[in-house]
Amino acid sequence: MTATVLLEARGLAIRFGGVVAADGVDLDVLEGEKLAIIGPNGAGKTTFLNIATGYLKPQAGTVRFLGKEITAHRPRDITRFGIARAFQIPQLFLDHTVIENLLIAAAGHSGRTTLMRSLRDLPERSEMENLLDLVSIRDVADRKAGELPEGKRKLVDIAVALALKPRLLLMDEPTSGVASSEKFAIMDILVAALDKQRVTSVFVEHDMDMVTRYADRVAVWSAGKIQLSGPPAEVLADPIVREQVIGI
C-alpha cells in the first residue's frame, strides 16, 4: 500500500548570512500520518514550516502540495490550498473572544466578507462551537483570547487552524510553554481532534516523550539535511541521533 504524498519538498536550500538552515532537504509528508520533525536547536525546523507556508522563499528547491508547486506563493494562498499552521507562540486576535477568533477564521475560509451580517450570527457558528468542544475549550468560548493561560491559548491557536478545514496542519512545538503536567493532556486532545477531522499533521518537537507517544514517523533535521526518517522507536534508538539530537 502506498499512501498519497501530500507535501513533497525537494532540494530545499536556504541560508541566513553564514547560518545554513537547509542545504538540500528532501522530505515527503504522506496523507494521514503524524510526522514529527526533531533536531538540534537552530537546525532549521521552523524554517521548514516557514517555507512550506510561503512565509520564506527558499534560495533553491521546490515544495509541492498535492503535486502542485507552491514554493513562490504567499501564505494566504497556501492557506487556501489547504495547509494550515499553528504557531509556537500562539498567534491570536487577543482583543477578540475565543469564539470570535474561530468565527473570523471561518469567515476567512468561506470568503464570507459580508458587510451587513454580524460575525456572531454567521451560519458556521454551531460548527465552530463543536470545534471548541472537540478541543475541550468550550468553557472559555466567550473569554477574550488575551486573558487565557498559555495552555488554553495553544489549543485556541490549533482550533483556529482547524477552523480552516485543512488537509495538512503544520505545528511548531504544540506543547512548548505549557507546564509538563499538562503536556500529555493537551496532546491527547489534539491528536484525537486531528484523527476525528482526518487531518494530516507535521509537528516540530523537542520533547522525545511526545515524539515517542504521538508520532507515526520521525524525521531528523540536522546540519541542513534530513539525516534519517522512520518509525519513532527505530529513529530514537539510532546512536548518532541519541548523541546529536537527544543529547545522551
Partner: peptide, 24 residues
C-alpha cells in the same frame, strides 16, 4: 460587527495570523 469589521480589528491585533487565515 460584521466579519469584515472584525477583520479590521484583527489587522490591529495580529495581521500575520489574518494572512494565515487566507485573508488579504
Amino acid at each position: 460587527e460584521s466579519p469584515t469589521g472584525n477583520m479590521l480589528r484583527a489587522i490591529k491585533s495580529n495581521e500575520t495570523r489574518l494572512e494565515y487565515l487566507g485573508v488579504s
